[in-house]
Design a protein around this nucleic acid. Structure first.
Length: 659
DNA sequence: GCGGATCAC
DNA sequence: AATGGTGATCCGC
């Protein structure tokens, strides 16, 4: 009887952290055979675009939601969203049953139904200790995020009065809105006509949303200028997108504040140490002297914040008036969250101590964590986990419920220490052995949406266009691929993908070749599909690049430098492994870069590779916890770092694999 | 390796 | 009446 399972309310309009225990009016499943204990499906957070963006605090969300729902009601798109929402509800119910089974079985063994959580928390202790202990000790990670980038670019060259009116970039689909428009609930990814309705109704007909067509060349030009300004502070910065950059200003701060150098002198020095001109290493060594000395010098955090403020001002000047916001913290997850905190044109500092980190991150809604989207939020909410502190409190439950990767990620998030895939110090995978593929890019794709219901001939014509466009990009980037994927979106918004990996020795780049493959595949999809084959989008993606495997193949000989360039975990744990073995030029260069920049201690690789959740899984059984702990002790006896620091064997051995 | 899902900008 | 494009990762087969 799943009715005995706690009737978690569906999360409707869960605004922010403070709102707890949303006891929804009990409309929840009266019928409900076993499932759907968690569905009321009409207005789920999955469907409504939550007003959790910067500049949208304190707006009349009820009316905004009402208008959006009214405008979308009955549309095919909305039906699709509801279907997705239902699928998530099913997933939630499955998880609840899994939990109920666990509680039941543990109760029969143990008499105390919730004691397995305590044991789980106990098992997590060493892992958490390791995480907390390995965290970076300085707040020098900066995320810079431009304020309403596209629309700000557009408004720059227009009469200033326009800035006081609700504006957006994009016609049918809004890509950015200014802060005036955001107060009406108009936001990115919203269809244009809904934006129009929102402004019209909520301003009582006094205002109209102004649409400005997008001009990507303009944004790209501005983005280059911005990067140029920021690069003075960290030549190795990562431009995550046109309007976002991740940088570590540790080295800059050390020289500028710690040593009192002039800005110009620091810039020149940093530029010569950047990865693009590492040949001057010795010269720089001379100038900088012993790194150890200054790298540990304590620079006051307010001085670091002042540097960030100065940096933002330089961006504003360089771009002719574009403002940005920044977050300053000890890792990039926190910095990213912080960058949103005082938007627009503001910044937020999070101190490096564990206490400060937790005080910052624990009160936040889990949705603030980059990587937790609508679906994950809904699932967590279903278990009464709303803010990051709940995530920590329920860490044992979380480990039990979710798959290894998710569980690890969530645990780290609950500790305010996660930076997966955002870290500029992460290996870039470029230059080293790749003759062809540009950066660490894994795939390249083109897709186009059009009005559904095209004839078969028209469809094939569209497909050819997409293939040719993709081919052209691949030629420009000198990319050749082994795998090609067709994507078809039906008028129902259902998506179908079909992939094919070419026989050995055959690579894809040529348009005609791609057209041959894709047209055949499209025909197969059409034949397989029951019902009307009405298509609204066609896409083609190429992946599995040639060149990626060559780099890996010859690393079988264990050349440490190759090793580092292809395998992130080793480089991440450089202080244990590389120091003892590596002496090649390449190694010392990377060491130099990582150490010099002090990219936040050991990074996450070690913990990333421990499978915590397997010890919570049904298969292994809870009794294994004890074994787990003994294993840890044994491990730390032979090699103190093994349990948490070991490189995932899969990561190494899989290198020369298949192709 | 394949296909579906999720997430971010 | 009407809801994008690009790239990545994870999971279960």
């Amino acid at each position: 009887d799943s009715g005995s399972v706690v009737p978690y309310p569906s999360l409707v309009a869960q605004s922010e952290s403070t709102q707890r225990n949303t006891s929804k009016s009990g409309s929840a499943s009266t019928a409900a055979m076993g499932t759907s204990s968690s569905s009321s499906s009409s207005a789920s957070a999955l469907i409504i675009s939550a007003c959790d963006k910067a500049g949208m605090e304190g707006i009349d969300r009820t009316r905004v939601d009402e208008i959006i729902m009214r405008e979308s009601a009955g549309s095919v798109y909305m039906k699709q969203q509801q279907k997705r929402d239902q699928n998530v509800n099913v997933k939630i119910d499955e998880l609840k049953q899994k939990l109920a089974a666990k509680d039941y079985s543990m109760a029969s063994i143990n008499s105390n139904a919730t004691s397995w959580r305590r044991a789980g928390e106990h098992a997590l202790e060493p892992i958490i200790d390791e995480l907390v202990q390995s965290r970076p000790r300085r707040s020098t990670c900066v995320v810079v995020d431009m304020d309403g980038f596209y629309i700000s670019c557009e408004l720059l060259s227009r009469p200033p009065e326009l800035g006081n009116l609700p504006c957006c970039v994009g016609g049918n689909m809004i890509t950015t809105s200014n802060y005036v428009a955001r107060r009406y609930g108009v936001r990115a990814a919203m269809p244009g006509w809904i934006g129009d309705k929102l402004v019209e109704e909520l301003s009582n007909g006094k205002e109209r949303l102004i649409h400005i067509p997008s001009n990507f060349d303009l944004y790209t030009r501005k983005a280059h200028i911005i990067r140029g300004a920021l690069a003075e502070y960290d030549p190795n910065l990562r431009a995550y997108s046109l309007d976002e950059a991740y940088l570590d200003i540790g080295p800059y701060v050390d020289l500028r504040v710690g040593r009192g150098w002039s800005h110009e002198r620091v810039v020149a020095t940093l530029a010569s140490t950047s990865k693009h001109s590492c040949e001057d290493k010795e010269h720089v060594d001379e100038e900088v002297g012993n790194e150890e000395e200054f790298i540990h010098c304590n620079v006051d955090i307010s001085a670091i914040a002042a540097v960030v403020k100065e940096m933002r001002e330089k961006v504003k000047v360089a771009t002719g008036g574009l403002t940005c916001s920044a977050g300053l913290a000890s890792n990039f997850m926190l910095a990213k969250i912080a960058s949103d905190q005082n938007k627009p044109n503001g910044q937020k500092v999070v101190g490096p101590s564990h206490k400060e980190v937790l005080e910052f991150v624990h009160p936040l809604s889990v949705r603030k964590v980059p990587g937790i989207g609508r679906v994950m939020e809904k699932m967590l909410n279903a278990f009464d986990i709303h803010i990051v502190h709940d995530l920590y409190k329920e860490r044992a439950l979380v480990q039990f419920l979710f798959k290894p990767a998710s569980a690890r990620f969530l645990l780290r998030a609950s500790l305010g220490w996660s930076n997966d895939s955002l870290d500029p110090s992460a290996p870039e995978d470029d230059e080293v052995g790749s003759s062809s593929s540009a950066s660490g890019q894994k795939g390249i794709s083109k897709e186009r949406t059009f009005s559904a219901g095209k004839s078969w001939e028209e469809l094939n014509s569209k497909l050819e266009d997409v293939c040719r466009s993709l081919s052209q990009s691949m030629v420009e980037k000198n990319i050749k691929a082994h795998t090609i994927t067709l994507k078809v979106k039906l008028h129902t918004f259902d998506v179908i993908t079909r992939a094919k990996t070419m026989p050995r020795g055959i690579v894809l780049q040529n348009a005609d070749q791609m057209i041959v493959e894709m047209t055949e595949m499209l025909l197969n999809v059409k034949r397989q599909h029951k019902g009307t084959f009405s298509v609204r989008l066609l896409g083609v993606r190429c992946s599995n690049f040639q060149g990626d495997e060559e780099r890996s193949q010859d690393s079988g000989q264990m050349d440490i430098s190759k090793f580092i360039s292809t395998c992130s975990p080793i480089r991440a744990s450089h202080n244990s492994l590389v120091h003892s073995t590596g002496t090649t030029k390449m190694t010392s260069r990377i060491e130099k870069k990582v150490d010099f920049a002090q990219k936040g201690a050991q990074t996450d690789a070690q913990v990333k590779n421990t499978d915590i959740s397997s010890f919570f899984s049904k298969e292994k059984g809870w009794n294994k916890v004890e074994e787990f702990e003994t294993a840890q002790v044994l491990d730390s006896g032979t090699n103190s770092t093994h349990a948490l620091h070991s490189v995932d064997p899969g990561n190494v051995s899989s290198v020369p694999a298949s192709r």
